[in-house]
Amino acid sequence: MNKTLQVRELETEFHTPRGVVPALHGVSFEVQDNEIVGIVGESGSGKSTVVRSITKLLMPPGKVSAGNVIFAGRSLLDLPEREMRQIRGKDIGFIAQNPFSALNPVTRIEKQFANIAKAHGVKVDASERSRALQLLESTGVRDPERVMRGYAHELSGGMAQRVVIAMALYLNPQLVIADEPTTALDLTVQRQVLDTLRRLTIESGRSMLIVTHDLGVVAAYCNRVLVMYRGNIVEQGPVEDVFVRPQHPYTISLLNSVVRPEEETQYVPGSAEEADTAEPETPDSPKVQLSEARRS
């Protein structure tokens, strides 16, 4: 199996007025072809920093100080911004957390698609437009023609996130990076959007790196998982291995905080799953899969 993305000993720091704050201490992992890799970890553990360091979207005062990112045989950290820009959107698609803050509020959706095409030297014509329409349709947008002519604020959250996904996939990237793509959506919509994402990546032979703090999402959608803790990857491997035989104390406590196998409908107070307890469990829900995975 080929490697789409290889990250070696990545170190990132923030140069704050109070001094240099290290955020990543040598992070190494890889994403194989046609694989979904999840990154989990508590808030502030450096998940978004990994994503931004790879795509070189880190804003000052953040700075990658060491390491290597190899994507499609190219070392991204050595590329000048001009070439990096051409990779973003074309070879690496990015899905933002909140679609309403990511989409341009004053530009028509079709114009935003056209801008992406233009930025990558793709001629904007009728066939390009119909390709965008098809893509919107395949992400599950109803009435894509009307959505294309409208603005972001006219959409519901789920629809807007599908538009973002369509934009990320527009130029057919090999790798999709999603930073908490469903946190801003309500629970039923989360599943539909994630299903769509999985269908559109795996079935088209793409790879995906997905950041989440929902272990259920990892259990249901990812092949492999990276567990981050304070700027380090403390554990990584196939989802079944990590969830069934966690090695690192942090991973164990992370798993324990979500669900206890002996009393699987009880949740630790304050956990993100709590809001979902009113809903009856369906057999394919990620949490049930998670607990089944732990029992097996």
């Binding site: 820009r85 959107g89 990015f94 957390q97 803050s101 990511a102 341009n104 930025a119 934009m167």
Partner: peptide, 16 residues
């Protein structure tokens, strides 16, 4: 802002 981060992540040119 996330809006500009997304625009840059889509590979838009600096002028755009």
């Amino acid at each position: 802002s996330p809006q500009i981060e997304f625009a840059r992540a889509c590979g838009l040119r600096p002028g755009q």
